[in-house]
Design a protein around this nucleic acid. Structure first.
Ligand code: ZN
Ligand code: ZN
Ligand code: ZN
Ligand code: ZN
Lengths: 132, 132
DNA sequence: CTTATAAATGTTATATTATTACATACTGTT
DNA sequence: AACAGTATGTAATAATATAACATTTATAAG
C-alpha cells in the first residue's frame, strides 16, 4: 500500500509537470516551465525535488542530473532504483524486475557494510536506436 | 591483460593525484591541488578526467560528482562499475565481485534494449560508522 | 625527413547545476 | 493561543561543467 502524501502547492505543480513529461527533466528546465505558475527561483524547484525524491514520487537519474516520475506504483521511497538509459536518444525508463531488485536488495559482501539503498543505471541502445 | 596506455603529462599528474588520495576527489579540488604543477584551468582537469574515465583508470561516482582510481586491476574500461558508499563518512570503495558483475553484465529484460554498460551505487553505513 | 592526422594543451569566457542565508507563512497539535 | 514542524519567498553565491578558438605535441605513412 502506498502511503498518501499530501503534496504541497509547489510540490504538486512540479510533480505534475515531471509526471506528464515524456522523459527525465532537468531542474532548470522545470524552473522555466513553472515560472508561469509563480515558481521563480531555483531553490523552490530544488526543495520540491528533494521532497519528491524523499517520498519516492520521483527519482534522480544521477548520470544525467535529471528527474523522472516513478514508474513503479510500489516505489514508496527511493531506496532501490534501476534505470535503462539509451545513450543515443537519451530515453530513460525505470526497470521493474523483481528478480533484479531481490538480488540487489539482498546483496552483501565481505566489507561488513550494511546496504540500505542502491541505484543502478544501465546504458545501451534502445530498440529504436539499435535499428537505425 | 591490461593494455598499456601512455598517459600524457596532464593525465599523469591528475591520475597520480587521484590514485594516491584516500577517497574520491572532486574536479575543483583536483584543480586546486595541481595548480602548482601548471594546470590552471578547469577544462584541463575535465579533459584529463574524461580520458582517464574512458580508458578505465578512474571512475566517476555519479551521485557525488567525484572521481576515484580504479581499484580493480582488470577494469580496462569503465563499462561495469559498482561502488559502496557510506552515507555517513562518505567512504567509497569499488566492489569487485565476480558473481555480481556476471549477473549484471548478463542482465536483460523485455524492453529489447541491448545493455553495454552499467553503473551501480550501493549506499549504507560502513563498519566503522555502524558501530558509532 | 616531410607530410598528414590525431591527440593533447593553453586560455578565456560562459553555461549549468546546486546551495547558503535569512525572513516569512502555513499546517496541524496541544 | 502557543508551539513545532513544514513549506515558501527572495537574493546572492557556490560548485560543477562546457564552448570556442588557437597552438603544440605525438604517431604513423610515404
Ligand atoms: Zn520508482
Ligand atoms: Zn534510443
Ligand atoms: Zn574499476
Ligand atoms: Zn562510514
Amino acid at each position: 500500500m502506498q502511503k498518501e502524501h499530501n503534496l504541497s502547492k509547489n510540490q504538486k505543480i512540479i510533480f505534475d509537470l515531471i509526471d506528464k513529461s515524456r522523459g527525465p527533466m532537468k531542474a532548470y528546465s522545470i524552473l522555466f516551465n513553472v515560472q508561469k505558475k509563480g515558481i521563480k527561483a531555483p531553490l523552490q524547484v530544488y526543495r520540491a525535488l528533494d521532497k519528491l525524491v524523499e517520498i519516492g514520487k520521483i527519482h534522480k537519474i544521477e548520470s544525467r542530473n535529471a528527474f523522472i516520475a516513478c514508474q513503479n506504483s510500489n516505489c514508496q521511497v527511493s531506496k532501490a532504483t534501476a534505470f535503462s538509459i539509451c545513450e543515443s536518444c537519451e530515453n530513460v525508463s525505470e526497470i521493474s524486475n523483481s528478480k533484479l531488485s531481490k538480488y540487489l536488495s539482498n546483496f552483501s559482501d565481505s566489507s561488513g557494510m550494511k546496504y540500505s539503498k542502491y541505484n543502478l543505471e544501465f546504458f545501451g541502445l534502445c530498440k529504436k536506436c539499435k535499428s537505425k
